[in-house]
Amino acid sequence: MFMGTIAKNFRIDSELSSQANKLLEGLGLSMSQAISMFLRQVVLQQGLPFEVKYPKRSGELLDAIEEAKRLEADPKTKRYTDMNEMWADLDK
C-alpha cells in the first residue's frame, strides 16, 4: 500500500542543524531521511528510542583525577622515563 508524504516545518538551531547535516552526510543520509528513521523508531518503540535524562557526572573519573594529583605530589611515587622501564619493574 502506497503512503503519501507530507511536508513539515521545524525550527532548529542553525548551528545544531549544520553539525547534524555534516554528520548525516558522512553517513549517506539526508536530514529528512534521518528524521523519518527517528519517527519510525518512535512508532516501533512506542516512545522515544533512547533514554532522556541528564548525563551522570562521572564520580569515578573525578576521583581518579584527584588521586593522580595526590600521587603526583607524593615524593614516594615511583616515576619512569619510558614504558620499557615500567614494564621491567612490573615484571620483577
Rank of each mutant, 00 (worst) to 15 (best):
Phe38Trp: 10
Met1Ser: 12
Phe2Thr: 09
Met37Val: 08
Lys69Met: 11
Arg57Phe: 06
Arg11Gln: 06
Gly28His: 06
Gln19Ile: 10
Glu60Phe: 02
Gln33Cys: 01
Leu29Ala: 03
Gln33Phe: 00
Ile35Trp: 01
Asp91Trp: 15
Gln46Leu: 03
Ser58Glu: 08
Glu60Met: 02
Ser30Thr: 13
Gly28Gln: 07
Lys56Ser: 15
Phe10Tyr: 15
Glu72Met: 12
Tyr54Asn: 07
Asp91Gln: 10
Leu71Arg: 15
Arg11Asp: 06
Met1Asn: 05
Pro49Asp: 10
Met83His: 10
Asn21Val: 12
Val43Thr: 15
Gly26Ile: 01
Asp82Thr: 05
Ser30Arg: 04
Phe38Ile: 05
Ile35Thr: 09
Asp74Thr: 01
Arg57Trp: 02
Leu16Glu: 06
Leu61His: 05
Arg70Thr: 11
Asn84Phe: 12
Ser58Asp: 11
Leu16Gly: 00
Ala7Pro: 04
Arg11Leu: 09
Pro49Phe: 10
Phe50Cys: 14
Arg79Thr: 05
Leu90Cys: 07
Lys78Gln: 15
Ser58Cys: 10
Ser58Trp: 06
Thr5Gln: 13
Gln46Tyr: 02
Glu51Ile: 09
Leu39Ser: 02
Leu24Val: 01
Met83Gly: 04
Gly26Ala: 08
Lys22Asn: 06
Phe38Cys: 07
Tyr80Phe: 14
Met31Pro: 03
Glu51Pro: 00
Glu66Gln: 08
Glu60Lys: 15
Ile12Lys: 03
Gly28Glu: 05
Lys69Phe: 04
Pro55Leu: 04
Lys76His: 13
Tyr80Lys: 15
Ser18Trp: 02
Ala7Lys: 13
Ser32Thr: 13
Gln46Lys: 14
Phe10Ser: 13
Leu39Gly: 00
Asp13His: 04
Val52Pro: 00
Met37Trp: 05
Phe10Pro: 05
Asn9Gln: 10
Leu16Ile: 09
